[in-house]
Simulated scan of single mutants.
Amino acid sequence: MDAGALRALAHPLRVQLFDILSQYGPQTASSLAERTGESSGSTSYHLRALAKQELIREIPGRGSARERWWERADRAVSFDSPEALATPSGKAATQLIMNEFLGRRQQQLMRHVSEQIAAADHADDGTSSITTAHIHLTPDQAKDLIGRLSVIVDEVVAGARGHEQEPDRSPFTVRVDVFALPEDGDAR
């Protein structure tokens, strides 16, 4: 991600808007305002800032002059760019963005656990999985695992892109966590 895009995204509401567009597909400033509890003027302002950096785009031919529809651009977004991490401001922006994204993911996971799994009529239909594995890996094995998992996720995402509005499609989140645990067992 270039410095301009990183700066544009380094705002909690913009992360939230970008994430909603990524997860739930096209939205208007008004629908995003309802989802976030912000004013449509505020969401509209932040949408334009994201669009200026080509992180999102307006959908041509959809909506009206008063109601513009927005979607996430088809470009990959990576936060481990050496250029971004080379400066203190780039590191700070990356940290803010990642904290916002991961905070949203954790809230979504906890909501899933508390609402869906705890529901009296919950039945395991095989459409969700919370899996944790503890293994000992070399750095090369960790890199290989990350690469293999990324290929699978990228393949499925590419195959699903453009089919969001088809019947029986629902938004899902895919979360793959691979990281070395602290040697001292401290969870800080």
Rank of each mutant, 00 (worst) to 15 (best):
A92Q: 15
K52G: 06
R66M: 10
G61V: 06
A92R: 14
A33S: 15
R14D: 00
A8S: 12
R35P: 03
E67S: 14
P60A: 15
P82D: 11
I56A: 06
D74H: 13
S44C: 08
T87N: 00
L17Y: 09
G90W: 01
R62G: 04
G25L: 12
H11I: 02
R7Y: 03
K52Y: 02
M1D: 00
F79P: 07
E71M: 15
P88N: 10
L13K: 09
A93C: 11
G25W: 03
E38K: 14
L13A: 01
Q16P: 03
S89F: 08
E58G: 08
R7F: 04
A3I: 09
A65Q: 13
R75T: 04
S89L: 10
L85G: 02
G37E: 08
D74K: 10
A73Y: 01
A49R: 14
D19A: 10
S44T: 04
S44F: 11
A73C: 10
P88D: 15
D80K: 05
S81T: 07
G37P: 00
I56H: 01
A84I: 02
I56R: 01
V77K: 05
A86E: 07
A5H: 04
H11W: 08
L32Q: 03
A86G: 08
E54T: 07
A93P: 00
E34N: 09
L17D: 04
S81L: 08
D74M: 12
P26W: 13
L55G: 05
S81Y: 01
A3W: 01
H11E: 15
V15Y: 03
Q16N: 09
I20S: 11
I56D: 02
L21T: 03
A76F: 07
S40T: 09
S42F: 03
S40L: 12
